[in-house]
Design a protein around this nucleic acid. Structure first.
Lengths: 354, 354
DNA sequence: TATTAGCACTCTCGATAGGAGAGTGCTAAT
DNA sequence: ATTAGCACTCTCCTATCGAGAGTGCTAATA
């Protein structure tokens, strides 16, 4: 896929990307030589830049003013040139500290994760709730409110709670509702969508109506599990114009869902980086998305992501995403799955996960 | 509070605000006369503008370039000069239509309300969940997950559902948990914070522990009911620089909570408009907030608001806020309160639903 | 007395021009 | 293969200048 580059070309590409990300200005041969005190002359660098330009890794906006990386160049940089670095220990401590302070509720964690990522990445962040690959019924409760209106509370495996208002065909007492709930709980525990459908025949009347609604809710939950997510750090995006695209992605939930779905399809463990452009990732034009799953692979997992301009400090952000994802995984294991991972304190446990 | 203005001065101030809101450019005497074909000469208008300037209603950014309204001028305009106008009927229909489409869940309504306001106001919108003045216990459920971990589901009057994970001192079977839930439900139904505390003495062991947690959750809910709200339309704000302030308000929830709390304290029914500035509303500098309560006054109420730059079409936005607030009130009455209001715009559903 | 016409002045905005700085490709020498 | 030198290009910044719009002030008018 990548045209092979000489070692020197790689070096130059790397330095160019690094410089451009920092300064935001097109980078020329002389600048590079001076900045990094290279042993070669600007003319040589010009040669190599011309080659990189030819191969599509860098480009010029204006005929005679420095080069900037192309998407392609960024990709190469990210996949081959980038050596990841750890978050500074002090920062790790700070983050852990914050998590330990608030460690009671999934919701708080998500909010916190979003806040932390936004702060450390200087981009916008995004966190979805952990959700199972396939939802399974755990428990339901029926609460009479007034007249024929009933509040259905549906608990799924994984701890997600859905609430839904429903109108009965005819009034029913709370006692009758409780009785129905009890029977349904006994009958449906642990079932997923398909099993539920199969067992529908055994029910009738009120119980059947409720079960159909449960089915409906679970189906919707299966289809788009992405209804609740938190984001933060829009402020960070508001400087330049490429901004708007990113904010649009955050604001339009359907768009976001589609992008995430497409990324997860390509799947793969660990951190993924998508650099926007034409075609498939047109929605992310001028943006880049760094994303990682967290939780129990295929069982109960959510995502953490950073979205920012194509020009972003990848190394730093990838580290941040991975680190937070690992922490979140730890919490999920601890609270929602039987066998906990190794110690939380040590962020290196991503190995253990596989 | 306001220095009295002559009728003509009021007219000129009104036209100036209107023009400035539309164009965004400082407005001068000649422009006004030409634009509105006034019977007076530019020189006369200049006289009046000088007077308005003197009195603090308008100001000049540059020594010799048109006037723009001050905050003070905007306030006067809003409070005294603005005659409200109805939303176009077609738009009303469209909005009603959308609400009817999605009418099942409070959550969906809030999302929808946010979306609609964002669209019609060309600003950012903001909707909080309806919440009772004082929360009261309705129902709880205890669900064993693993080991000593238990999921507490707490339903409050008004339909709000809280979930909280808790760790028991010692393991307990699901049967034991259900029994505890049943007893607590019988004992605590309808109680508010104070009553709950009083009744705590009648409990012991597992039941007492649970009740204490319930107390805690309700207390937190009473203190800051504003944890779940929806916003939309940030995109609309992203043009000029005064933007950032607005987005900051939306993003920093604590800031937002404070602002809302302060507004509600001043209280009063109907739509409120706050135009940001120094001192008390420093957080809203260069922004304006149009806000209305909805729901049942003092019993179960939320807010709808539009936040935008000081330079915004107030008349239109106030109409929109009021209209949406009225719709939402209708729904709250219909679904959560015993006695419905009089008919909404569309008499068909409020009647039929009961 | 209230209004208006006229006038000199101010200030912004846009277009134009020139120069500094940085970058480029090409060629010839090392 | 690398480098020095050179002519050239293009952006960005600054200065200048006129057009346009607005202002305050004064004197004339109804």
């Amino acid at each position: 896929m990548f045209k092979p580059l000489s070692e020197r070309q790689e070096q130059i590409l790397g330095l160019l990307v690094q410089t451009y990300v920092e300064t935001g200005l097109p980078v020329g041969s002389k600048t590079l030589v001076e900045r990094f005190v290279l042993d070669i002359s600007p003319a040589t660098v010009r040669h190599e830049l011309a080659a990189l330009d030819e191969a599509g890794y860098v480009t010029q906006i204006h005929t005679s003013g420095g080069r900037i990386p192309t998407e392609f160049g960024y990709r190469y940089f990210v996949q081959r040139l980038l050596r990841d670095f750890e978050l500074p220990v002090t920062e790790q401590q700070m983050i852990r500290h914050q998590f330990h302070q608030a460690r009671t509720e999934m919701e708080q964690w998500m909010r916190l994760a979003a806040a932390i990522l936004a702060r450390t990445s200087q981009g916008a962040s995004l966190v979805t709730a952990p959700r199972p690959r396939q939802n399974r019924f755990k428990h339901l409760e029926l609460i009479s409110t007034q007249g024929r209106l009933v509040l259905l509370i549906l608990v799924l495996f994984g701890g997600e709670v859905k609430q839904q208002m429903l109108t009965l065909a005819e009034p029913a007492s709370q006692a009758r509702l409780s009785q129905a709930a009890e029977r349904l709980n006994a009958l449906l525990e642990g079932l997923s969508l398909g099993d539920l459908q199969a067992r529908l025949g055994q029910l009738s009347g009120l119980e059947e109506d409720i079960a159909r609604l449960v089915l409906d809710v679970i189906q919707r939950a299966d289809e788009r599990g992405l209804n609740s997510f938190y984001h933060d750090g829009l402020l960070n995006l508001l400087n330049d114009e490429s901004t708007r695209q990113a904010v649009r992605v955050l604001e339009e939930r359907t768009l976001l869902s589609m992008v995430l779905a497409e990324m997860l399809e390509t799947a793969g463990a660990g951190v993924q980086v998508v650099i926007g452009g034409e075609g498939r990732w047109a929605a992310l034009k001028d943006c880049a998305l760094i994303l990682s799953r967290y939780g129990v692979n295929g069982e109960l997992s959510g995502e953490v992501a950073v979205l920012g301009p194509t020009r972003m400090p990848y190394g730093r952000n990838i580290s941040a995403v991975r680190y937070v994802a690992d922490l979140m995984s730890g919490f999920v294991h601890e609270y929602y799955v039987n066998e906990p991972l190794l110690s939380l304190e040590d962020p290196r446990h991503s190995q253990a996960e596989l």
